[in-house]
Every structure is written in C-alpha cells, then in structure tokens.
Design a protein around this nucleic acid. Structure first.
Lengths: 226, 226
DNA sequence: ACGGTAGCACTCCTCAGACAAGCTGAGCAC
DNA sequence: GTGCTCAGCTTGTCTGAGGAGTGCTACCGT
C-alpha cells in the first residue's frame, strides 16, 4: 500500500498557487499591475493579510515586485530558470566546452588585472592543492576547484564569478568521479600545468595564461571522454 | 559627486535581510527551529505580521519552511543561487564583458556547426529585425534579442544556450532603455553588422563571424557607457 | 494656451488584537 | 508499557485602523 502524506495546504499557499497560475499561464504578462490587495482578497475569498503573504512568497521567488503607493507588478513570468537543472542534464562535452570558454577568458583577464591579493590567494590555493593530493580524493578535488574558482575571481568580473559558481557543484561531482576512477597519482601530474598557470597570472602574461588553461582543461576533457 | 540611489526599504525587507544573515551566516544551520513569531517580532522591533511576511519571502526563496503548530524551520542555508539577481545588480561593463565572451564564442561555434535550419532561422530573424525597426522600440529590441538568441542556439551547445537565456531579460531591459535614448534610426545602422554576421555564419567562416560580433557588441558597449 | 502646483484618490506598509487550527510533550489511567 | 487526554505552545487567518508613497487631475497664475 502506498500512502501520500496529507497536506492541509494553508490558504496562503493556495492563494500563491492561484496567482502563480495567472502569471505563468500568461494572463498577466511581465509589467502587468495586479489588482489591489482588497480586490484580490475579495476575489480569492481570503483576508487581506493572506493575500499579502502570498504576494511576499511570490516576490521571494522573483515573480512579483510590490512598490509602495504604486501597486504590485509582474517581474517575471517564470521562476528563476534553474540553470543548475540544465547543467545536471547536460553532456560532459557541452559542459566542458563552456567551462573552457569561461576559464580561458578568466585566465586572460586575471593576468591583465590581478592584484597582489589575487596572486597571494592563487599561490595559497596552489599549495593547498599540492598538499591535498596526498590526502583524500574529496579534499584533492575541493582544493582543485578552489584554485580554479580563485582564478576566475582574479578576473575581477563579478558576473563571470557568479557564472562560474553555477558550474562548481556539477564540476566537483564530475571530478570526484574521475579521480576515483583514475587515481590521484595520475591526476597530480596536473601540478605542473597549475603551477605554470599561477605563474603566468602572477607575471601578467595573458597569452600564456590562456594557453596553459586551455591545455589543462583540454587534457582533463580527454580523460573524461575516453 | 557620486550618489547611491536611496532605497526606502520597507521593514519587511529589512527583517528578511536580518533573518537571511542569521541563516547564511551559519548561526542557524539547516533544521534549526526559529524563535516564535512573537519573540522574533519583539527582538526585531516590528509587528508580528511584518515578521510573518519576511518569513514568507524567505520561504519563497526556499530558505525557510513554516509548519503550523510546530514552528518555522531552516530548510537550506543558501538561496537557490540566482544568477538573475547578480545580473540585475551588475555593472553594464561587467555584463557586456561576459556577453561579449559568450557571443563571440557562440558565433565561432555557430559558423562551424550551423545546420540548414539554423541558417534559415537566422535569416528569418534578421529580416524580422529589419522590419521591426520601422515599428515600436519594444518590437525592435525583441527582434534584435531574438536574432542574438538564434545565433547562440546555432552554436549547438545547450549549456551555452541556457547560459545566454539567463542574460536575455537584463539585456532586453538595457537595450530598450538605450533605444529610447538614442532612437531607432541610429540603432538600425547596426543592420549592416547583423547582416554580415548572418552571412558569415551561413558561409561557415568562424573568424569573420567572431570579428563581426565582437565589433558589433563593442560598438553597442560604447554607446551604453558614454 | 501653457506650465507649474496643490489636492485627491489609490496603493502598499505597518501595527494591534482576536480567535482558529495544529503540534508536542507531560501526566494519567489502564 | 501502552494509549489517551489535555494544557500550552506554535503558526494560520481575519479585521480595523492609520501612515506613507505614487500618480493623476483640476486648478491657477502667467
């Protein structure tokens, strides 16, 4: 016998659901001004505060935006598209193609703009990666990802950083699997490439930084797609 | 003198922000039961309904989960990383730097891999863009964005496409503002560049496609950052 | 006729108070 | 030990009131 848990479903959630349907269903396109709280409360058959809480919930999802004095407006017609979902379903080849794009660009920018603090962070991350190679697979992968994250951060573009962070969980998962399959001893050969990368950024050589990253990720890709 | 825009920031948002800090800061790990609404209201110095709305907003973000009779519990310690939020807050320069990266790469890949269907879609989008120039600002921008989206789609990498789609709303907003400021007549000069781009992709010339996109976006960037 | 302004209607924001509904654990009867 | 009851907590919901911001309109002076 299979039982479904019984959900009383508070009025707030029911109200939010109805509003969501209007929005995602296309009845209220982006920019639409919603009816006033009192009107909505009457048509939904609930109290004003219930409507307000439903609106807040949808605002938290990024669908609505209340503006005092003006009204409540539709900000988007669908919840934040889950990029993470796309990434999970994506093929390794597509994933690495985009990763390559981001990191080569980041390497170039990092070499051009790096601050002293960036270089210090990168060198610390490199050292940590080397040490972690003698420890567990997870620790090694974490250290590796941290180094790559530091590289992207050194590019000094918050948008690029945010973009890369979307990849981190998927990236990490894939790397753990790969390291478990091939062993760390083999993987640690990447040390030379990573050291060269940090050096290129430190000395401000964009071309060299881009080349090194490109070769390093290319090598990893080959190992992941036999 | 540089001024930051003043934001009245309703109490609800301030309260939500404080709660968020507790959660993301680690003070309340996953599974924690929050103090009761009345207690929170007292310690935050606001009314109970205000606290309730703040909780609803965070619930909408997936951080909290209220359970009637039991309490409010921490469901996750970080929001579904919303790239869209970063994009909204980002500077135009950072945004366009990343856009440039995506589209130049997409142009190159599109020229290498385009199918007949891709070319047909691109040509239709180009024609629609030309026609839309004689209509409203919104229609013109929509057609322009559609053309760029078609370009990225022609690269044949779903991850890249998903990535670009994250940019579309912000991109669209910025373009509308720009077109309203400069007028469509001026902007439609971009017609030659866009036609050249479609041609380069159609004839399978990656270098030319990349160059054209780079120049086109570069020109737009200059107009947006006077 | 035109531009600026004061007023007004509408909106969301916040609070307080009341009662309903649901959960949890202590205590009790068996 | 097992199961029941109940008290005290929690969130859920509604209502009424007043505050504050926005945007439109009608008025007035030029």
């Amino acid at each position: 016998m299979s039982l479904r848990s019984i959900q009383p479903s508070p009025l707030v959630e029911q109200a939010a659901e109805q509003l969501r349907e209007q929005i995602t269903g296309g009845a209220w396109p982006v920019g639409t001004k919603l009816p006033g709280e009192t009107t909505l409360a009457a048509s939904l058959g609930v109290g004003r505060s219930t409507v307000r809480e439903a609106i807040r919930a949808l605002a938290g999802e990024g669908l609505l935006q209340p503006r005092q004095g003006a009204g409540v407006f539709v900000l988007a017609v669908e919840s934040r598209t889950d990029l993470a979902d796309h990434l999970r379903k994506a093929s390794v080849a597509d994933l690495y193609e985009v990763r390559m794009m981001i990191e080569t660009r980041a390497a170039r920018l990092a070499a051009e703009r790096r601050t002293q603090a960036d270089v210090a962070t990168l060198e610390a991350a490199l050292e940590r990666r080397t040490r972690a190679a003698r420890r567990s697979d997870e620790e090694f992968v974490d250290a590796d990802v941290a180094l790559h994250t530091a590289l992207v951060a050194a590019a000094g573009n918050p948008v690029l950083t945010a973009l890369f962070e979307q990849f981190v969980p998927t990236l990490r998962e894939g790397l753990v699997e790969m390291v478990k399959r091939l062993g760390r001893a083999d993987e640690n050969l990447g040390h030379r490439a990573h050291a060269a990368l940090v050096a290129a950024v430190a000395e401000g050589n964009p071309d060299r930084a881009e080349t090194v990253v490109s070769e390093e990720i290319g090598a990893t890709t080959l190992r992941r797609i036999p």
